Simulated scan of single mutants.
Amino acid sequence: MTGTDDNRVRYPEMRGKIALVTGGSSGIGLATVAAFAREGATVILASRDADRAEAALKEIGLAGQVSWIACDVADGGDVERLCATIAERHGRLDYAFNNGGSGGRWAPVADTAEADWRRTIDGYLTSAFLCMHHQIPLMLAGGGGVIVNNASVDGLRGYPFPGGAAYSAAKHGVLGLTKSAALEHAASGLRITAVCPGWVDTPPVARYFRDDPVKAAAILQQTPRGRIAAAEEIANGVLWLCSSAASFVIGSPLVMDGGYMA
């Protein structure tokens, strides 16, 4: 599924800046890594799997401009090491897209095991807290920056099908965390905000659509645009939020859903 004919946007102020994208090996994360790199930024791709990261770097094909650092964003020690490594190598951090996340088995609330609930909350919400906890001091030391958290339209409403309650709860939490942290730093030169995508053509969503064509049809019927988003379209929104064009966007999320929530 495609977006615009040319998904690239140009923000000259990003040239030479340092950008971090967690969960950057595929989907929205990979599209955002590529978008930052096209703008001339030096990009750190953080993810858990070395093989997938190596494949992603080959796909982008911008040797020297994009590097990989291993990190499980639900592990506080890993996130601390990630930010310490960025500080050591680059001396600052200008942009961070907290996109990485994972969870436990999906099930209705009454059937969800406590361990799966905790894995989902840790994977999508605690991870955002850990990233900001270590990114904020690094950005403030450099005079400011922009943090964009990947929330979801499911952080704005209940999950539309049985089984997504823990995920929806985590994404609601991401938005509350984002808004509160944004207010804490609104006058400091550090901007914090979020993007709320609807359904996006990523590998997991593509598999989901193949496995359940009835739900896929229902989702498309509920999306006025008539299709789901391309990952590059969400990346465009992330870059806009990071750019000087969005200098007055603080805390409020950017909803990108093809009219799904309208």
Rank of each mutant, 00 (worst) to 15 (best):
G64I: 11
R92W: 00
W68V: 02
G16W: 11
T223A: 10
S67H: 13
C131I: 13
G23S: 06
G104L: 06
G176W: 11
A87W: 02
E184H: 12
I192W: 01
F209L: 14
S188I: 04
L30H: 04
H90T: 04
D51V: 11
Y11Q: 06
F161G: 08
T42G: 03
R48N: 09
R119Y: 01
V249H: 06
F36H: 05
D49V: 09
F129P: 10
R81E: 10
G226M: 10
A246E: 04
P253Q: 08
V9M: 07
A113F: 06
R38N: 05
M261A: 11
M256N: 02
L45V: 03
H133N: 14
A46C: 08
G24K: 00
A128E: 04
G237E: 01
R8G: 00
L93D: 02
A229G: 05
R119E: 07
G143E: 05
Y260R: 15
G27E: 01
I44L: 15
E114T: 14
H133E: 07
D201I: 00
G158C: 13
I192V: 06
L241M: 13
S244W: 03
A235C: 06
R210N: 08
D154C: 12
Q221N: 13
L125I: 10
T42H: 14
A182L: 10
A187S: 14
A87K: 14
G29D: 04
G64Y: 10
E59W: 00
V153I: 15
R10A: 13
S168K: 11
E13Q: 14
A194E: 06
P108T: 14
K215C: 00
A84S: 15
R10G: 00
E114R: 14
E13S: 13
S26T: 00
G173I: 09
L175W: 02
P162E: 10
N7Q: 13
D75A: 12
R227E: 09
G258L: 10
N98C: 14
S243R: 11
I121C: 07
T193D: 04
L140F: 05
S152N: 10
W199H: 11
H185A: 02
K58G: 09
P12M: 10
P203F: 05
S188F: 07
L239H: 08
D201T: 02
A218F: 00
L254I: 08
G144L: 08
F161K: 14
R157P: 00
H90K: 11
G237H: 05
Q221Y: 05
D75P: 08
A41G: 08
E39K: 06
I44D: 04
A84V: 00
I250Y: 11
G103E: 08
H185P: 04
T4H: 13
L175F: 05
S47P: 03
G237Y: 02
H134M: 10
